Computed example of a mutant assay.
Amino acid sequence: MSAPHGIARRARWPGPRRLCAALGIVLGAACMRVAHAQVQASEVQVKAAFIYNFALFTTWPPDAMQADAPMVVCVTAEHPLQAALEKLTGKPVRGHRLEIRKLNDGTVAGCHVLVFDARAWTGVRVDPATPLLTVSEQPRSQRAAGAPDPMIVLALQDDRVVFDIDAMAARHARLQLSSQLLRLARSVQ
């Protein structure tokens, strides 16, 4: 015998509640992926803004930069912050316009800020006495052999971007970090 018409119909077409639940799960998963991508994008943008502000609150020695020269931020190849930093090109920094340069040849000559990945260090040599502000996302314990000690380490703590400063390394490089910057750091060594 065949089943009553209503039962066969339910088997072929899900009820409105089932359909709504299935759509809710699919849409919820899609929204979570979009929200996760937005959080990642905003983290990158926030870190790029921090680097810009590090440049604003750092004073280089007079012989480190000519009056009409750009402030050059060098970024190691394939660094996740590169695209976000490039959006800051041309912004003013202490009377200079910001220029972003991708390090391809391994030389930091002409750079004022170096943003690098300490785990995937490419072998660029950095003299600790060079007035070059070094910024990384990896602390000393995670850096590759030969990578320079970062003066500023960016980190994520409780969904907030924080940073630690090695003030001794900055002084050794003849850089003066603003007291405001030092107060905002999570830690200063």
Rank of each mutant, 00 (worst) to 15 (best):
L98Y: 05
S42D: 10
E43H: 10
R18N: 08
P92V: 00
V26M: 13
A55W: 08
A84E: 02
P92C: 03
A48E: 08
N104D: 13
L85H: 05
L88Y: 00
Q40K: 10
R17L: 14
F50Q: 07
K47T: 01
V73A: 08
K91Y: 04
V44K: 13
Q38C: 04
A48Y: 01
A29E: 00
L23Y: 03
A35G: 04
G106F: 06
V44F: 03
R97I: 05
L88N: 05
V26T: 13
R94V: 10
I100E: 09
C31N: 01
Q82N: 10
P70D: 12
E99D: 11
P92A: 12
Q38Y: 11
G106K: 06
Q82R: 14
V93Y: 10
P61D: 07
L103S: 11
H79S: 09
F54Y: 09
W60V: 11
V26W: 06
G24C: 05
A21F: 14
K102M: 11
W60D: 10
T58I: 01
L103C: 04
G90C: 10
P80D: 06
V26F: 05
D105M: 08
P92L: 08
Q66N: 08
A55M: 05
V93F: 09
K87N: 10
M32A: 15
K102R: 15
A84N: 06
D105I: 02
S42I: 00
P80N: 01
